[in-house]
């Protein structure tokens, strides 16, 4: 699962928990169960607006049960570890270290990801209309993908640049690493520059 999918799933989960908790408390405070006939179970404390948000009696209700402390500690530990992992996953840059060249089973051949990325960037900067290129190779050793940030010279058009990029640097990188496909994402900016004035 990609980082985007993980982030979005977990954000949705946290959002749902917050929304559900907030909605329950709000329903309690505004007496919505009674007014709108929501039919919440009558032993839920949120059905009574005069009930405390969390009364001491509710807080320690299961304290004497044998499962209470292990469950609380395990739940909190799981939440802490999971969110720590989630936080650390955001710091990873995700650059691929080595790319496995396929069809070289007897001699494992690997290409350094950074070297390939630099080669693509250098070739891209030679293309007409491109003033700067930054390239990173992400993904895994067997399925790398390229991410490019291109700065165009003033007056250059994106269409031809993209065609040259695909036919030149990206195709060369793909064939030299022996890959069947090299998916790429490019973000284009334009260099601010002087405008030739027509008088």
């Amino acid at each position: 699962m990609s980082r985007t999918a993980v982030n979005r799933t977990l954000l949705a989960l946290v959002g749902l928990v917050l929304l559900a908790g907030g909605a329950l408390l709000l329903a309690g405070g505004l007496d919505l169960n009674h007014r709108w006939h929501l039919g919440l179970p009558s032993d839920w404390t949120v059905t009574d607006p005069h009930h405390a948000v969390l009364a001491p009696a509710d807080r320690v209700r299961w304290r004497d049960a044998g499962w209470w402390w292990p469950s609380v500690l395990a739940g909190l530990a799981a939440a802490t570890l999971l969110s720590l992992w989630w936080l650390l996953a955001q710091l990873r840059r995700g650059a691929v270290d080595r790319i496995a060249v396929p069809d070289t089973d007897d001699i494992p051949v690997r290409v350094r990801g950074a070297a390939l990325a630099r080669a693509v960037a250098e070739e891209a900067e030679q293309l007409p209309g491109v003033s700067r290129a930054r390239v990173r190779l992400l993904g895994s050793a067997r399925h790398p993908r390229a991410r490019l940030a291109l700065t165009l010279e003033p007056g250059a058009a994106p269409g031809p640049v993209l065609r040259d990029l695909s036919a030149g640097p990206l195709t060369h990188a793909r064939t030299s690493a022996g890959l069947a496909v090299l998916p790429a994402e490019a973000v284009l900016k334009v260099e601010p520059g002087p405008v030739p004035r027509v008088r």
Partner: peptide, 21 residues
């Protein structure tokens, strides 16, 4: 324990939770 559900702070807090969610 001391704030009731219909306390202004409790309602405001619940609304903030809903909005964040």
């Amino acid at each position: 324990a001391n704030r009731h559900l219909d306390d202004a702070w409790a309602i405001a807090g619940a609304a903030v939770l809903c909005a964040l969610g």
